[in-house]
């Protein structure tokens, strides 16, 4: 039971890393990014690749995060920026196109066989969290990193000048620009952070799940569910909803028959939206 709870929380923090990027980009740039899962995939593949050629897990971490952040900036500046003012259908189409390209390009480069990502010995074992209850060390690390990032993100958005720019740019872009905020640069930076978080989630998922083409899509869907339940644009909502979805999904799979277990998340979403159509923590009235 405790083990399942920890697994649920761990899935929850992974989802939060994904959903925070989605919800910020959506809430602030009003942009639907279906390609967010591709950044997660990019993080996992880069990490596995760097680790396989260098043999170092420690080197793979910054490499994956930096590369996905860079990819995020390239896409933002090169393509997505032109779509902020356009309707959601165009945004869906262009990011859908990118998903197809990303999946196929990854298949071309790395082949259809999943990559392996072995853990360093320090993290490969398990620790006894309670007497007689071992738990994989790496999952604990994932949990800790996720919670730390969530806290850091909250502090940055709510307590720093950069966070203030971000919030200013989101609530009124022309006024923020007139006040001297370089909105373009803030948005690019924001996109890079969202991408880096997706990359971080991907690299942490690497040793737990298979590193393969299309791995970004299941988590993208769950992250969308989290975003919608939490209220689009709300970091707090994303955090609460991510933990909720992580726990419900984990326990649903253990306790319910498989057909129902894989659908329980969506039933939860339907139930919440039936009462709160704008999510648990609606941002704009």
């Amino acid at each position: 039971m405790i083990e399942q709870t920890l697994n649920g929380v761990q899935l929850g923090v992974m989802l939060f890393l994904m959903a925070s990027g989605l919800t910020l980009v959506f809430g602030i740039m009003n942009f639907i990014n279906l390609a967010h899962g591709s950044l997660y995939m990019a993080g996992a593949f880069t990490a596995a690749w760097i680790q396989n050629i260098s043999g170092s897990f420690l080197l793979a971490i910054p490499a994956a995060i930096l590369l996905t952040a860079a990819l995020g900036v390239v896409f933002e500046v090169g393509l997505f920026r032109r779509f902020y003012a356009r309707n959601h259908l165009d945004q869906v189409l262009v990011t859908f196109g990118i998903v197809l390209v990303a999946n196929e390009a990854t298949r071309m480069i790395f082949g259809p066989v999943p990559l392996r990502m072995p853990l360093p010995p320090l993290l490969a074992g398990s620790v006894e969290i309670l007497p007689g209850l071992p738990y994989p060390t790496f999952r604990l690390v994932v949990l800790g990193v996720g919670l730390a990032v969530a806290g850091l993100l909250w502090v940055i958005v709510m307590r720093t000048r950069i966070g203030m720019w971000v919030r200013a740019g989101s609530s009124n872009r022309p006024i923020a620009a007139a006040m001297g905020v370089d909105v373009d640069r803030v948005f690019a930076a924001l996109f890079a952070v969202g991408a880096a978080l997706a990359g971080l989630a991907g690299l942490m998922a690497g040793p737990i799940l298979a590193v393969q083409v299309g791995m970004g899509e299941p988590i993208l869907i769950l992250a969308l569910v989290v975003t919608v339940i939490g209220g689009i644009g709300s970091i707090k909502g994303a955090f609460v909803a991510a933990l909720m979805v992580g726990l419900v999904d984990t326990f649903g799979r253990v306790l319910l028959p498989p057909a129902l277990g894989s659908m329980v998340i969506f039933l939860l979403m339907a139930l919440i939206l039936a009462f709160r159509p704008k999510g648990l923590f609606p941002v704009h009235g």
């Binding site: 659908m263 969506f266 939206l273 159509p277």
Partner: peptide
């Protein structure tokens, strides 16, 4: 359920239901 919402919410919810 999904038509109680609109715009991006509708889009994401229908996507989620599709995967369901």
């Amino acid at each position: 359920v999904s038509l109680r919402t609109s715009g991006p919410y509708f889009l994401m919810i229908t996507l989620a239901f599709d995967q369901m």
